[in-house]
Every structure is written in C-alpha cells, then in structure tokens.
C-alpha cells in the first residue's frame, strides 16, 4: 500500500548539540509528523525508522524500568509490513485511548499491543516490541500533551537512539520485514494467494492480501 506522506520535517544536525558518540546517527535524521485521518488534530503522531540500532538493549531497559522519558512505542521493524500496517496499529490504539478503552498502561504500550491479533499484552511485546537483539527499530510517539512536539521528540531520539535513520516508507520497510515471521504472528501461514490469472493481477497481489489480512486482524483484536 502506498501511503502518501503528510509532512516530513527534516531537522539539521547543527540545530542540536549532540554527544559525539552518536552524532553519526544524526546524519540523516528523519522524524515524520503524521496527522492520521479522523484522529484529533491535537494528537499528531511522530514516527522514525532506524536501521542498525546499536543500543536496543539499553532502550528496552529504560522501557522496563518505566522511565517516563522513554514513553515510546518501540517496535521491532522486522515485524512491520508497511506504513499502513504500522499506522493501523496507531489508529486503533489512539482511538481506544480517546474512548477510554486502553487495555495497557498508556497509548504507547497500547500501540505495541495493537499490533497483536491476540489479547495477551505480554505476548504482544515479545512478538512486536523491541528486543535486546533488535537491529531495525520503528519508534512511534503520540503527542498526548502540548509539550510533546516534533522538536522535543527529535532531540530526545537523536540523543538516545544509536542507529541510522531511514525513511519510513513501504520500500524501506519491505527490505526490513520478515514476512515469514509476520505471517506466523498473525497466523496467516496458510494464506492462499489469488491465482495469477486475475485481470490486472500483479506479483504484488499476495503481499497486498497479506497486508489487508493483517489490517483486519488488528481491527478485530478483542472481538468476542
């Protein structure tokens, strides 16, 4: 699925004083601000995608220790098929949040949970959340208060995530995604692919069907 980008704000490294050790990571800093359709305008979503992350273990540790400064959704990017996949989890979590239906601690943990097709929160973190071994990391931050701005998030991430920022787009994600693992997580291993004889059928039909199946699973999680 091709998602048009709403706005991409690039920040130059010179605007920040950055510790030398991670300055290399800032060379291509891309933190995208996304206004998701139908969600409140006061709640933009900031998304950055990193490759070759060096400090996943320490980021995860911050998360576990409950450090409020590290309230992010840290997603193992190998579990992400596409922009629409990631943003669907965000949409679900934010909508549940504004309706007072969070099942986990906050909207960011809820985003991780929202990737999951099942109701087990711990399991959703194991499958979709950051692990010590995570190399490719998707970071999502929802502006839940006015203090959370593009600049504040960009500055904080550039200080603490050691990795190279890459564009959050379908091309990049398709290089990172581990389709076999994703299919397994969504129990879509037996996914039938439509016959190639379909009119206008392309080789992408299988991928498209997988993505749409995943969106359906995210939408229906918790339905009894």
């Amino acid at each position: 699925m091709d998602l048009s980008r709403i706005s991409i704000l690039e920040k130059k490294t010179t605007e920040f004083s950055v510790p030398k050790s991670i300055a290399c990571a800032m060379s291509s800093s891309l933190l995208e601000t996304i206004d998701l359709a139908h969600l409140p305008p006061s709640m933009p979503v900031y998304v950055a995608l990193y490759r070759d992350v060096k400090n996943a273990a320490s980021l995860r540790q911050q998360l576990i220790s409950g450090n409020a400064d590290f309230e992010y959704a840290f997603i193992d990017a190998s579990m992400v098929l596409s922009r629409a996949h990631a943003l669907s989890a965000v949409f679900r979590a934010v909508n549940d949040s504004i309706n007072g239906r969070l099942k986990s601690r906050n909207v960011h943990s809820e985003i991780v949970f929202s990737f999951s097709p099942a109701n087990n929160i711990a399991e959703s973190f194991r499958k979709f959340g950051i692990a010590d071994s995570t190399k490719d990391l998707l970071v999502i931050k929802v502006s839940t208060t006015p203090e959370i701005t593009h600049d504040s998030v960009a500055a904080h991430l550039s200080q603490h995530v050691e990795g190279s920022v890459v564009p959050f787009d379908d091309d990049t994600l398709s290089n990172i995604a581990d389709v076999t693992k994703i299919k397994k997580a969504y129990k879509l291993g037996a996914l039938k692919t439509p016959p190639p004889t379909q009119p206008n059928g392309t080789h992408d039909d299988g991928t498209k069907q997988l993505e749409l199946s995943v969106l359906g699973a995210i939408a229906l999680r918790g339905a009894t």
Binding site: I6, D35, L36, A37, H38, L39, P40, P41, P44, N95, I98, N99
Partner: peptide, 11 residues
C-alpha cells in the same frame, strides 16, 4: 467519534 473531528490539519 472519532469522525466528528473535521479539522484543517488532517487531510
């Protein structure tokens, strides 16, 4: 909700 938000900043 959430479809009652029709603000300018979203598409």
């Amino acid at each position: 909700p959430p479809f009652h938000h029709h603000h300018q900043t979203t598409p």
